[in-house]
Amino acid sequence: MRRGTEIDRLYDSHAQPLYAFLLSLTRNEADTRDLLQDIFVKLSREPHLLDGVRDERAFLIRLAHNATIDLIRRRGSRERTKDRFAAEIISPFAPCDEPDGRFFRDELSAALVELPPDQRAVVHLKLWEGLTFEAIAEVLEISPNTAASRYRYGLDKLRERLRPLYEEIK
């Protein structure tokens, strides 16, 4: 009973950001659901997994990242996966009624797909999870300098791709 309650709590606290992160990486809703379910099944099967963990969110994002990397490796080469994701692209952003806003989100979504997954993960965690480079480094098991450089590279690509649109609607 207590295990069930704990899983409910973890889901209600962390499922939304995990969903957004997974969708940003996979861009596929079915894969995102499978990965999200795998994470909570793992938590249920190993109830002591979170014992002694200081930051639950960071730990769960790391699980999500590792699960996504495993999925990509299982599926074969990165290019094939990217093609598949591109074919079934789903925007990680909420729908927008306002035309300019909707266009910007669509363009941003398309620009994010063109980033390599490691840069996309850092950009997502920095912009939409609000993590510091130190926290991102810990989650993705890279150095803070690597996290910062990946963010800079990713952001420069987004800026270049979206500059005309951004200047127009600013």
Binding site: F40, S44, P95
Partner: peptide
Amino acid sequence: LKRQPLRQLPADWREGILAAAKAVEPA
């Protein structure tokens, strides 16, 4: 970029995912 709201987690996933999680026995 930061102001762009992210897509919401489908509400109907909760029941299925939690049922699958609760169906497994602890290791």
